[in-house]
Write a protein that binds this DNA or RNA. Structure first.
Lengths: 242, 242
DNA sequence: CCAAAAGTGTTCGCCGTACACCCATGA
DNA sequence: TCATGGGTGTACGGCGAACACTTTTGG
């Protein structure tokens, strides 16, 4: 630190010190897709207040980490996964939102491939995937956080290729359609759906078929991220009409 | 507070007390529209660090107020205006974003009718409206905050009727078009623009004309919020093709 | 051979886009 | 009367929406 910076630091910690600091936390809204349903990962809270009640996975921000780092750490602690799709959503700052103390909490939402989770991972045993359509009561304002996350997911999934974050690298078109139907809670026409997806030229059809759901089998596809980035550079916009 | 709540409070302040609190702030990105230009209200910072440099209007969150309340208070202190359009945008939590201390700051953006400002208001004399196309360097990460706010404004202005927040209650269609052209930094076809706006049936044409900009005069219109709410209830979506 | 899921084309109407001329009026 | 900004209509192409039958194959 340069002498000037030290000077500033001293001057200003005095100035800033008349203000009250607040506990600062992060809560993670974790979506997964399995059995044709959109699910949310929640845990039984292990500390008071509200110990034993359902809660989002959260934690306090440490002095040496940024908000984003805190969110990633918390997600990693729960799932053992790194470098996931993760976006900051909203910061909740009502004075009494947490009965234990004044805590200002920032929510993040992430989309994960359930298949990637190491089920031996420590904390995951306290956790549970719930269908979003039948969530239990969560502590504090966590239900509101989830509602906002869902709203955002619905706002984004048809304008950005984020749905693929919820599927394995190889997937079938019926699977992809089921995902969108789960997100938007409505049925889509098979032909129109395939047309609008394939028209974008972002999926590479593989030679393999997935015969889990039918005798005929459905072709596997892979999302081509290079093509996507190239198209974006040319002013293209991802779009699935909803 | 009930006995149980006190008990919880005691138990949990112990639990929570092992975590470090952080200074928590709010910064306001304030847009206005005047002289056919989109402008941003910024101030000369009055405290160290970076005293005298250009900055967004901001302040620390007080123990007894929510984040939203803090943002509204700060906007009120600067402009003397209440109940403005104001949305939370993003929370900035990099460890060293503020050289004075670790401060986690939440940005809010608001749209105001410049005409409403009481120019005698105390703090406004330190402030200045800058065209967004030629902003100076701002302190900390404030330029990034503005960039994100602009992105959000552009994302929302053609899908929600928020543009009207920047205009006086009575406005002409050429004015409205100039606003959209300022937001999106591109020209639109007069006929198509009028068609897409009027088709929605949200504007009431008045009998008055505004002759400020032409000899012929342009009809004044008023945004009809009741009609809008009614249409929304019926599943309507505001839309101006961009 | 049959049940169950995968895959495939066409038609229609609307909306987004491009485009050029007349109108009203104060100076 | 003329310069200036305000106001108006039409034609075309593409996209979203609706819609039904054939194909494959394991059991």
């Amino acid at each position: 630190m340069s002498p000037e910076e030290i000077l500033i630091k001293q001057t200003t910690s005095e100035v800033y010190s008349i203000y009250n600091p607040h506990l600062t936390a992060v809560d993670c809204i974790i979506f997964g897709f399995i059995e044709s349903e959109l699910k949310l990962l929640i845990i039984k809270r292990v500390m008071d207040p509200c110990k034993g009640l359902w809660s989002l996975m959260g934690g306090f921000v440490k002095p040496e980490e940024s908000l984003d780092e805190a969110a990633n750490r918390i997600l990693y602690d729960l799932t053992g996964l790194k470098d996931l799709f993760m976006n900051q959503l909203h910061t909740y700052g009502e004075v009494n939102r947490d009965p234990g103390a004044r805590v200002i909490s920032t929510s993040y939402y992430s989309l994960i491939k359930i298949q990637d989770i190491d089920s031996d991972h420590e904390m995951i045993s306290n956790a549970c995937w719930w269908p979003i359509s039948e969530l239990p009561d969560l502590i504090f304002d966590h239900n509101a956080m989830v509602a906002k996350a869902l709203e955002t997911l619905r706002d984004e999934a048809h304008r950005k290729p984020i749905g693929f974050e919820l599927l394995p690298p190889k997937f079938t078109l019926p699977q992809l359609q089921a995902l969108y139907e789960a997100i938007y809670q409505q049925k889509f026409d098979k032909r129109n759906f395939r047309k609008s997806i394939l028209k974008m030229n972002l999926l590479d059809q593989l030679d393999e078929k997935d015969k889990v759901n039918s005798k005929k089998g459905a072709y596997l596809y892979r999302f081509n991220e290079e093509k996507y980035n190239e198209l974006i550079r040319q002013g293209f916009f991802f779009n699935i009409p909803i």
